[in-house]
Every structure is written in C-alpha cells, then in structure tokens.
Design a protein around this nucleic acid. Structure first.
Lengths: 344, 344
DNA sequence: TTGTAGGCGTTATCAT
DNA sequence: ATGATAACGCCTACAA
C-alpha cells in the first residue's frame, strides 16, 4: 500500500521527502526517463510498461514537480492574470471564465489584484514574470512603457482585455468605452432629454465612457450636465450618496448616467428613498449588465458586454498562441449592446 | 544600455534568451553566487558590490527564475487558494483580502475555482500540489479522505476557511454555520413568528444554516415550515423565482429565511413586485451582510461575518507557519453578528 | 566578503 | 521501446 512505500522513501533519508521520478522508477524497475515518457508521452511507451509505471505512481504517491519540469522545458502551464479589482462585480465573471477555460486547457491561473495604478502594475508584473508564466492577461490598454519593455523582453504571449486599441502589446479582446459612452449619449439625445447628472467612478475607463456620452450630449441645445466623480469602490452605498449630492446641487435632472449598474442601483434606491420615482421623475442608466440589473425594480437600463465570453476567448487566444495554433483574430472587438429596460 | 546587453545575450546563442544570474555575474565581473547573495541576502555583501550587481541587473534586464530558485530551496512563495466560486459575492471579498495580504507578505496566489464537488476538488488540488506551493487555503471542512491523505503527504501548511470544526486538517478560520442558523431561528422564535419559508441554496453550508434554524423553529408550537431549495447560482433572479414558488404554494408566511443576501434581495424585489410590503406583510432575512445589504430598501436584516478580516488572517496564519512563526491560535472562530435592520 | 562544487527533479537528446 | 547523460537556473555548503 501507499503508506508502506512512502515510509520506505522517508526512512531512506531519515526524514520526509516527496516521491520523485527516481523513486517511481525504482519502484517500477525502470529508468526515470521511461517513467517520464509514460506520464507525458504515453504513446511511445509499451502499454505493459505504462501499467507498471501507473502502479508505481500510485504506490509511491508521486506528484510531479512542475518546478523541475518547467525549468527543463521552459513551459510552465501557468498563466498570470492581472486585474485591478474583483470585488466590484465588474471583472469577477471574466476572471472566473478565464479560470474555467484555462483549467479546460490544462493551465493554472496566477491571479494578481493590482488596483488602478500603472506603476503598481509594473512592479507586480515584473515579479510575476519570475514565475515564468506561459502567458499573461492584462486588464486595459494603459501600461507604463517600462511594463511593455519588460513583457516584450520576456517574450510571452499577452492578451489585453476590457478595452480596445489598434496597437495592443500583443493580442487584445475588449470593447470601446468611448463608443459605449457615445451610445448612451445618443440614446438620450434622440429622446429629447436635456438635463443630465453623471455618477462616475474615478477610474480611467469609466471616465472615457462618461466623456463619450458627454461629447454627444453637448450637441443638444440648452443641455445641462452635472458630474459627480466618486472614489472607489463603486458600491451601492456610494451610488446613493452620489445621487444625494446631485439632488442637493439644486439642478433638475432628466437622466442620471452611472458608470456601473451598482451605482445605478444605488441611485435608484436613493431616489425612491426620497420619494422620487424612476423613471417617472428621472431616468437612470447603468453599465455592464451585472446579474441583478435585469431583475431590479425598476429593471435597470444598461449597456451589456459579454463578460463571460470575453474571458473564455481571452483564455483560448492565449492557450492557442502558446500551443502554436494560429490565432485568427488577434484583436477582437466584443462590441456592446444597449439594453433598454425600465429605468431609462 | 539595456538593449545593448540584451542583444549581446541574445547573439551569444543565436536566439532570444532571458538573462540569468550567470549573465548578471559576467556583466558585473563577479561570480553568480555573489550576485545571488546581493539579491537575496544583501547584508552579507559589501555595499560597493551590491551597487555593481544592481547596475548589472538593470543593464541585463534580469528577472530571477523562481522555478530554479524554488527547485533549489523547496520554497516557492506560492500559495494555492481553492474556492468553490467567486462570482456569487460570497467569497470574493475573502479572496481579495487573501490576495492583498499574501502580496504584503511576499507571496503569489494560485487561484483555483473548483465548484462544489469534493471529488473535483481532490483532483484539482492534486495538480495544484505539483506547483509545490508553500501553503494552501481550502474552503470548507468537507474534503475526501483521499484529499487529506495527499495534503498530509505533501506536508505543507493548510488553512481551511469559512467553516468550523474541532478537527481541521491543519489550521482553520471560520464560523459555525449551525450556530448562525440557530441564531436566526431564535430571533424569530422569540418574536412570536410561526410560519416560515426557506429559500436555500443547495450547497452544504447553506443547508447546515437552514437546518440550524429549523431545529430551533421546530420548538415553536404550531409552526409551519416550507422550503425551496434553489440550484446555484444563488442570484437575485433565483431569489425572485423562489419567492414566487413559496407564495404559489398557498402557504401563509411570517418570515422568509434566505441562505444569502442576494436571495433575500431577490425575495424582497419579488414581494414588492407583487404588491406586498417587507416587513409589513412578512419579514425577510439574508446571510453574509454583502455590501448592498445595509443600503437596500428595506435594509436587509442579515447575519454578518467579517469576510475581509477572515481572509487577512488566513493569509497571515499561513505565512506565519511557513516562516516558522508560531501560530498562537490555529483554530479561529470568527463568530458572526445578527444585524437587525429593516427587513426583519 | 567572495568563490567553487554539487544537487534540486525534470526533460532533450543521443544512444542502444 | 528504453536508457544514459547533460542541461535548465538557482542555492546550500563548504572553501578560500
């Protein structure tokens, strides 16, 4: 049984040690190289030999050492994933999708949560690279030139996600935040709205969406625009507070444009707490189509992006490139969908 | 400059290769061992030498290879974290807290999202161990005996989180789901409620909370209890649907007990959609004190656990044990707090 | 304070 | 189909 042989291994050196290929080879009466082949390239090994190896693997409790394997092959089956946050609902679906699909493809995920500062990202990615990941996922397209230099030097596939540019570091899958903003602006502009309140998180992409909307809204004669920029995290409480600020400003609003559904949900809550009705007194629009948006009361009008599919495809793009499979579309625009529900 | 030396490295072998300690040593006119010491144990190296090393590191663009380092030292500065899900709001704070604190302590996080099946967990942890992590975080206390055997054999520190038992694999930080359930039951029992509807996710811990509540509620004379077990994911939509099922059953309810705030929020939404008022027509209680619970309308009565602190402390327990610092409390009961707000 | 030799566990490569 | 040898890049242990 397992324990018997484990004990032998332990007693040889006088203390605990995990089984190695050598141990398995000894148990099977084979060379380490043959065991390695039986495990990694079974089709060149005789079936009977494979059986012997498997038995020895079980009896020794052998677990391969991927540090040694990676060192020898320069392939680690490791993907580093870098995101600014996961507890704001925005990226968590994408991260879980990436994780799931990487697992399907036989990779592990090294997850790093770095916040929104490009300098922090640079330092952290640098240490991440010391794990020699086979590929890396970065959120967004704004990185320090130092970071780009480091990554290029490491010479591994990269996928940037959640934004769009014609000049990614390597591969890219995302959508245009500016166009999302434009679409929101046009929705209101073509419906005769004139007075707008923005509740916008202070991160760069949220700002781009906001400015995209504003650039359209400015074309409306006699428009009025009032902004509240909120510090992260953009949770429901912050949304409620921001709406209060807008209402206290004395402006009148036709529509409140929020940089996320969470803020929108908060704004709606606060409106109703103050005896106002959405969309009767004013409209509210969010972003991201988070899982509660469709089921809120009122259901939240928003811009939807396929966060899950984005993650799946990002993982596949990386795995494909790593494995030498040509990536047909190295730059993917996922697009977005304006989803009109009750709140606007 | 960087590129010059990088090019030298490249041309030596005719193709791209990342700089090694050897390259840095050559550039600095030192031995690899001295470079290694300058980087990892600077206090035993002359300051002038360190300066030379740093210059060479910069000029070569050297990034240490932790595969090689880990192989040599058997320490990887890697922690494997295993959770069932992250996109249900329950674990995401804890995971982010673990990630943050591990970063502070100089560790990277290998994150694995395994679902709720113990067998899947076993296989996945087994492959995870091939990375030779310095420690591992497991969610919950129910694992296959095979898993326990494998982990014990690997001989690394383990922290189980988010549950409580006197007999953890190694260390543990969490809380008693049964007692959480008891507390909920007592809250209603002492207030004269008699008719209960449960909306409960089908995972094991949610069930334990439910049964903990029921065991108390059964002591109420003429109680009536009706359950709906919902399939994952336990999102707002599912909560709405489940409440509809309860109402359609024709039972009358004083209180709806939900296994998460998300389900509770859905139940409240659905109630109001049907013209019912919470808590006037019936009370609703959730679990976890998710970030929206306090700011919902009505604010959601719930049981709060300090998810963030739990993660911080789990990371510290692991790092301490790995680094030979005695862990004063290897079994930590985080407790819970019944937070009475408006919905119940 | 710095350098040398050897080994960590695996796989590529070249035999047999 | 299987085996022997030499890396992979770093660090421990010992030597100078």
């Amino acid at each position: 049984m397992t324990n018997v042989l484990n004990n032998i291994i332990k007693s040889q050196k006088g203390r605990s040690r995990t089984a190695t290929l050598e141990d398995v080879a000894q148990a099977a009466g084979l060379s380490p190289m043959t065991v390695s082949r039986a495990l990694n390239n079974p089709k060149v090994v005789r079936p009977a030999t494979i059986a012997r190896v498997m038995e020895a693997v079980n009896s020794t409790g052998y677990i391969p050492n991927m540090l040694a394997g990676g060192l020898a092959t320069s392939r680690t089956k490791l993907i580093a994933v870098v995101v600014p946050q996961i507890n704001n609902n925005m990226f968590v679906d994408t991260v879980q999708a990436i994780s799931d699909q990487l697992a399907v493809r036989g990779y592990h995920m090294l997850l790093c949560i770095v916040g929104y500062e490009p300098e922090d990202e640079t330092d952290i990615v640098s240490t991440l690279l010391s794990r020699r990941p086979d590929g890396i996922v970065l959120t967004g397209i704004h990185h320090t030139s130092e970071l780009k230099r480091i990554i290029l030097n490491a010479n591994i596939p990269v996928v940037e996600i959640w934004d769009l540019t014609p000049t990614p570091i390597d591969m890219l899958i995302g959508f245009s935040h500016e166009k999302v903003g434009n679409a929101i602006g046009e929705y209101f502009a073509t419906r005769g709205f004139t007075n707008f309140g923005f509740i916008c998180a202070s991160d760069r992409r949220a700002m781009v969406r906001k400015n995209g909307a504003i650039s359209v809204l400015r074309t409306i004669p006699e428009h009025d625009i009032k902004e509240v920029i909120v510090s992260r995290p953009a949770n429901m409480e912050v949304g409620r507070h921001a709406l209060r600020q807008l209402l206290d400003s004395g402006h009148h609003f036709d529509a409140i444009i929020c940089s996320s559904d969470t803020l929108a949900q908060g704004a709606i809550m606060e409106a109703e707490a103050q005896g106002l009705r959405v969309p009767d007194d004013f409209s509210v629009i969010g972003f991201a189509d988070l899982n509660f948006a469709a089921h809120n009361r009122p259901a939240i009008t928003t811009v939807s992006v396929d966060k899950w599919d984005l993650g799946i495809r990002a993982a596949d793009m990386l795995a494909d490139k790593i494995e030498g499979i040509a990536v047909a579309e190295p730059i993917v625009d996922m697009g977005y969908r304006l989803v009109i529900r009750e709140s606007a």
